[in-house]
Nucleic acid binder design. Structure first.
Lengths: 242, 242
DNA sequence: CGGTGATTTGAAAATCGTCAAGAACGGTGG
DNA sequence: CCACCGTTCTTGACGATTTTCAAATCACCG
């Protein structure tokens, strides 16, 4: 399983600034593994003995609450680095990574992380940028969850998804992987019941087309409008200075 | 304003791994500035021309929505690095940093960031750990906002605050800075009305003591209990595999 | 063609936010 | 030292969004 082509990894943004020698060094320590659909690469709470880059397929990262509810943290696309618990000095993974479709991932042992970062300065910058982007997105979600009502949150989630994994089609933009309404609910902080109702309403309004595990946004403009719409006229909250 | 003692900065965790020569280098490029209470160090949307480390005082970082609602992202304690928009390759600050009490901050011009990181490998690791910690916390908040009802969210927020800025007293643990119920609401994703009701109830239950801009947790145990309590018995949601 | 997972919908319940006053507290200036 | 003022906090009542509960339909995979 360790037959890896330098060209494959060279296209990955995270490694883009490395020269050939560095790439070979990096590659030589990696192993690849196949992850069948529905399988976890790692589970929340497991010992964090590796970090990963996804080559093919798609994963979802979920956090499980004390009572078994799942919250979808992020999707992992090919080229993305994930499972970098060691960057936090964590001993265990704070979430679970599950393959949505059959996938292939590269893995490196955790203990080479520090050496990795300190010996390839550009890698550090790239990784930091990735973390920064995620921080941004997480804060945006916090903001949305704090201030927007359900319909608007779902709209924002869907817009983020088509920006990230949308495929253009004749009828509109399609989410390029099997997406359950349950997933969408877990990514938006609501129940799949509410998601179902909302999607039905949007379908009637001609904004989306729904299939089993499939969503096509036929009117991105309209969806954006839903996303930005202030809920009613009830935002007249004062903002006292501290 | 540029009389800086090496010993001051040496105690800051973020610079802990640097030797004296590096410290001098780092320090020589910094300027310090006083930030009166209520003033912003930078505003959301401003050009990100500097990054900072707080020396004294306390800031809050807030994101403002399109409609003027504020969401509290985080408090900045002495020693914390903040405003590192450049790590994200952002041109502007994604949030506003406001002084809660009179504060003093160090500032470095943004354009030395890359040089900073690449020439001090341990600095990169430290910064990455900070970002990782924040990512963790942001995800935790997303999880809480997605699955917990208001009372429990406020409890978790308060617990996080005492862990971060709690001062032990005879009666219990006190939040060591003026904290408005409005702030607490903005940090928990609710309204100050709900916060007020909840705090009143807790005060009756002997869990907290409330003053103007002041909160003392008299029963941390009890608060934790509120925080962990499953809302009722209604968590029997199925968790289908993908 | 059965069965399991996914989705849809209705109706009832519940949590929270909204609206509306007031009260309490602290600081300020005369 | 006291009266005034603005901010912060408190509380009740109401309404609305959203979840919960229940049941039924649908679609696809052996």
């Amino acid at each position: 399983m360790t037959k890896l082509d330098r060209s494959i990894i060279h296209r990955l943004p995270i490694f883009s600034a490395l020269d050939d020698a560095e790439l070979d060094d990096v590659l030589s320590r990696a192993t690849s593994q196949h992850v069948p659909k529905g399988t976890a690469v790692f589970q929340q709470g497991d010992d964090a003995n590796a970090f990963f880059v996804l080559l093919h397929g798609l994963l979802k990262v979920v956090k499980v609450t004390a009572h078994g509810q799942q919250v979808l943290i992020r999707f992992v696309n090919p080229g993305d680095i994930y499972g970098i618990a060691k960057a936090l000095r964590r001993e265990d993974y704070p979430a679970t990574a599950i393959a949505i479709v059959d996938s292939v991932t590269l893995a490196w042992p955790s203990d080479i992380w520090d050496d990795f970062i300190t010996s390839h300065p550009f890698l550090a910058l790239n990784v930091m940028q990735v973390m920064g982007d995620r921080l941004q997105e997480a804060h945006t979600r916090v903001k949305e969850l704090s201030t927007e009502e359900v319909e608007r949150r779902v709209a924002h989630t869907l817009l983020r998804l088509i920006a990230q994994s949308g495929r253009d089609m004749e009828q509109g933009v399609m989410i390029d992987f099997p997406l359950t309404q349950q997933d969408l609910a877990q990514a938006s902080g609501t129940t799949f019941h509410s998601v179902s109702r909302i999607l039905s309403a949007w379908e009637s309004a001609g904004i989306v087309a729904i299939g089993r595990r499939k969503i096509i946004v036929t009117d991105v403009e309209g969806l954006s409008h839903v996303a930005e719409q202030r809920q009613t006229i009830k935002d007249k909250r004062r903002t006292p200075s501290s």
